Amino acid sequence: MELTDIWFVAITVLWVGYFVLEGFDFGVGMLLPVMARNETERRVMINTIGPVWDGNEVWLITAGGATFAAFPEWYASLFSGFYLPLLLILLALIVRGVAFEYRAKRDSMTWRRRWDACIVAGSFAPALLWGIAFANIVRGVKLDARHEYVGTFWDLLNPYALLGGLTTLALCATHGAVFLALKTTGEISGRAAVLALRTGVAAAVLAVAFLTWTQIQGGTLGTVILSAVAVLSFAAALGAIAKGRQGWAFLLSAVAIGVTVISLFAVLYPNVLPSTVNPAYSLTVENAAATPKTLGIMTWVAVIFLPLVLLYQSWTYWVFRRRIGVGDIPAHH
């Protein structure tokens, strides 16, 4: 296997980690006005992701940095062509992060509600826009012979991409509800389980439609099998949550999201950004890659430091593994 292939796989793994971990973050944020009935329950929900949400975003930073270093041509074409949606995602993530830190700075219900609205919007927008962006990457965009995007913003809002956005939105909402069922106690956990089943049905329908459309466009036997595994895992997750087995439900939901991301990258390979103008203009793992020396240095850096990052993040989740409920929330000051 060439270094270019290894780094394509590595970037795939980074995006899998991002969508699996940040996915439930987005879900919890979106469900804040739906699940919580009072300020104490809102604090319970926010505290379930409080210790980990910023660490989960490291996967996004690493994926972006790895793309820039390993496939600079891909990075340049992607960030120029998808400038507006990526800017909206960045702004949403900034507002969301500020909201987590500032909502408790004043003892004012109006103040907290405004920041809660920022958390909801900052979770909703990335969950939707990432699906639209990745659907366009798989489908292909208008690249010319110089690998420059020659389309418009509205070209990105095609039916396939919008279906991809709705799919990731529904999957994140369900993943977040399953996480809440696992991480909380009492009434919140019960309501989260019920909501996970309701949103899960919609997510399953959207996912089947999106993955089927993806396979029709350019699937192989291998990607069809991956898509089937993703759908079956998600169905099993809904079955587990219905039986009250929240741990298994969360694990299977994570598997479903991870395998879905892998299947999209498998459909994309060996392209990294197909051209709908002319297939010869497409960016591939070969013509978009950095020099072999650069890839070699990156590989050694990843081998040394990636295990340390994984160990640290695993330790964080272990430390904050306990379920929480309204009884664990002190009086607000």
Rank of each mutant, 00 (worst) to 15 (best):
M1N: 09
M1Q: 12
L3S: 07
T4E: 13
T4A: 08
L14N: 09
W15V: 04
Y18S: 06
E22S: 14
E22H: 00
G23S: 14
F24M: 10
D25L: 00
M30H: 11
N38V: 07
E39I: 00
M45D: 02
N47L: 01
N47Q: 06
T48L: 02
N56K: 12
E57M: 03
W59V: 04
W59T: 06
A63Y: 10
A63K: 10
G64A: 14
G65D: 15
G65Q: 06
A70L: 07
A70G: 14
E73A: 13
E73R: 15
E73I: 07
W74G: 02
W74E: 13
A76Y: 00
S80G: 07
L84G: 07
L87S: 00
L88D: 11
L93I: 06
L93N: 06
V98S: 08
V98K: 11
A99L: 08
F100L: 09
M109K: 14
T110F: 12
W111G: 05
R113Q: 08
D116C: 02
C118H: 12
V120C: 06
S123F: 03
S123G: 09
F124Y: 14
L128E: 06
W130C: 00
A133Q: 00
F134Y: 08
N136K: 14
V138H: 13
G140T: 13
D144R: 15
L157A: 12
N158P: 10
A161C: 10
A161I: 05
A161G: 10
G164K: 01
G164S: 06
T168K: 04
T168W: 10
A170L: 14
L171I: 11
A173I: 02
H175N: 08
F179I: 02
L182P: 01
K183F: 04
A192H: 02
L197M: 07
L211I: 00
T214E: 04
G219A: 12
T220P: 03
L221V: 08
I225Q: 12
V231L: 14
S233N: 10
A237V: 03
A237L: 01
K243P: 04
G244I: 00
G244P: 04
R245V: 02
G258S: 11
T260H: 02
T260S: 07
T260M: 08
V261A: 09
V261S: 07
A266W: 01
L268A: 08
S275A: 11
V277Y: 10
A280L: 05
L283Q: 07
L283F: 02
A290W: 01
M298A: 00
T299G: 07
V301D: 04
A302H: 05
P307Y: 08
V309A: 14
Q313S: 15
W315L: 12
T316L: 14
R322H: 05
V326D: 13
V326M: 12
I329Q: 13
A331N: 14
